[in-house]
Simulated assay, not measured.
Amino acid sequence: MALDDTTEELARDAAQGDHRSLGELLRRIEPDVLRHCAKFLPYHQDAEEACQDTLLAVARNIGRFEGRARFSTWLHIVTANCARTTYRTLKRRAAEQASEDLPDLRADPGRVSVIAGYRLDLLDAMEALEADKPDLAQALVLRDICQLDYNQVAEQLGIPLGTAKSRIHQARKYVQGILGDAYGPLA
């Protein structure tokens, strides 16, 4: 999400408690947040749910935005976390539905689209990484999902550049191992 300078300024004003700036900020970022959520979640309704959760999280937590990094960086992290949380909730609901022997009203995303199935498997792999090695997961999200450069990742995490690169490399190997089991060797 590349946000213009006006949006960055709105975020700084909103963080200082300006409610009008917050309203305008939320209006401006909504389309980008929805597009970003759709990268995580293959169903439009699920992406919309994650988008609304993200906007709510921004509104609730904007006071925590300190302005040390760009707002777009902070927003990427909030969006990724909300999308993953939405995914976990949907996964839990599906498991509960399956345990109640109710018919599944959704099509299997693995059958509907190879891309959609791969996205869900990637989310499962990210969830496993987060549970097992959260420091690696955070670095991977910043680099490969938020598309920050290595220096920005190191700065965001408050670690040396070499450590950031190492964590990203280890995280990629971890995820590739999980996806390799599902899809065969990854190039």
Rank of each mutant, 00 (worst) to 15 (best):
T73D: 00
L142T: 01
D18W: 02
G180M: 09
E96R: 14
T163H: 02
L10R: 14
D108F: 04
T54D: 03
R84V: 00
G180F: 06
S21V: 00
L55A: 02
E48Q: 15
R12K: 08
F71R: 05
R119L: 09
L22Q: 15
A14S: 11
A80H: 09
P134K: 11
E155R: 11
D46E: 15
D132I: 02
G180D: 12
S99R: 11
L3R: 02
E30P: 00
I77R: 08
R167S: 06
V141E: 12
E96T: 08
F71A: 06
C51G: 07
H36D: 06
A154L: 06
D13A: 15
H44A: 12
L186M: 15
T73E: 01
Q147C: 13
V175M: 09
C146R: 02
I115V: 13
H36C: 07
C51R: 14
D32F: 08
A128F: 00
D181A: 12
L10I: 08
K133Q: 15
Y43G: 04
A57S: 12
H44C: 02
C51S: 15
L148A: 08
H169T: 13
L26I: 15
A131G: 07
A57W: 01
L136H: 13
L34I: 00
A107R: 15
V141M: 11
A50P: 14
A187C: 06
A164H: 05
V112R: 07
L136K: 11
V114I: 04
D53S: 14
R60M: 05
R12Q: 05
Y43I: 05
L25G: 05
D144L: 08
C51L: 03
L148Y: 00
C51D: 04
V78K: 05
Q152E: 15
A59W: 01
L10Y: 06
A131P: 02
R92P: 00
T7L: 09
A125S: 14
I115E: 12
G17F: 06
Q52W: 02
R167G: 07
A83M: 11
R167L: 11
A128G: 03
A50R: 05
Q97S: 06
G67Y: 07
P109C: 04
L55V: 08
G67M: 05
A137N: 14
V114L: 12
D135I: 13
T85P: 00
L34C: 14
Y118C: 03
N61F: 01
A98R: 05
C82N: 11
L22S: 04
I29M: 01
G184V: 10
D144C: 11
G110I: 01
A107W: 08
L25D: 01
R12G: 00
L136Y: 10
A38G: 07
A2C: 03
D124V: 08
P160T: 13
E8I: 13
K91S: 14
G180T: 09
V114M: 07
L22M: 13
G117M: 06
S72K: 08
W74F: 11
L22P: 11
E9Y: 02
